[in-house]
Amino acid sequence: MPLIDATGFKQNGFARMTEGCSLPAGDVILPLEKLSTWREEVFSRGDRVGVHLPNTARVDEVWPLLDDVALVSIDFPSFADGRGFSLARGLRQRGFFGVLRAFGPLIADQMRHALGCGFDEVETPEAVIVRQPISQWRAALETITLRYQRGAGNGLSILDRRRAAREMGHRRFHSGLALARE
C-alpha cells in the first residue's frame, strides 16, 4: 500500500510479516503477537524491527515491549474509528521516539489529524490514492495551517503564538521603558 508523509509519497523501507508467511528479508513490521518470537532474529541479522498494533492495544501493556523497536504501526480498521489517534498520542506522551505509522484507509482530510497526534506517516490502500491523489493530501495540510491544541503535533499552536506575541509585547514594552530611561 502507498506510504505518505507530510511531504508526499515515501519509500516504504519495511516489509510486513503477514499471516502464514515466513519472515521477510530486511526491515520488518511484525504483528504484535509475533514480536517476541522473531525480534531477536531480525536484530541478529542487523535489520530494524517494527511492530503492528491493533487499536485496542493499551500503552501500559505494549510499552515494555518497545525497546529498540524502530517503528510502530497502528491499525485503523476504518477511517471513522479514531482510537488509533489516542493510542498514538499516548505512545508519544510515554516517550516513544521512533517512527509512528497509521495503517488503514485514512483519507487525505485526516493527514492533519494523524500528524497532530504524533504520526509520521500514513499507509493507506491504493484505492484511496486513486480517488485522492497526492495533491489532495498536500492541499489538505496547506488548507488548515492553524490549530488551537497545545502539545499536539509540530509547530506552534494558536495558544503558543498568542503567548509569544504577549512576551514580545512585554519585551517591547520593557525595552521601550529602558530607552525612555536613557
Binding site: G82, S86, R89, C117, R147, Y148, Q149, G153
Partner: peptide
Amino acid sequence: RQWSSLHPEFSFL
C-alpha cells in the same frame, strides 16, 4: 470552544 475545535485526537469519537 477553541480547544475542542478541529481537535486532531477527538474528531472521530
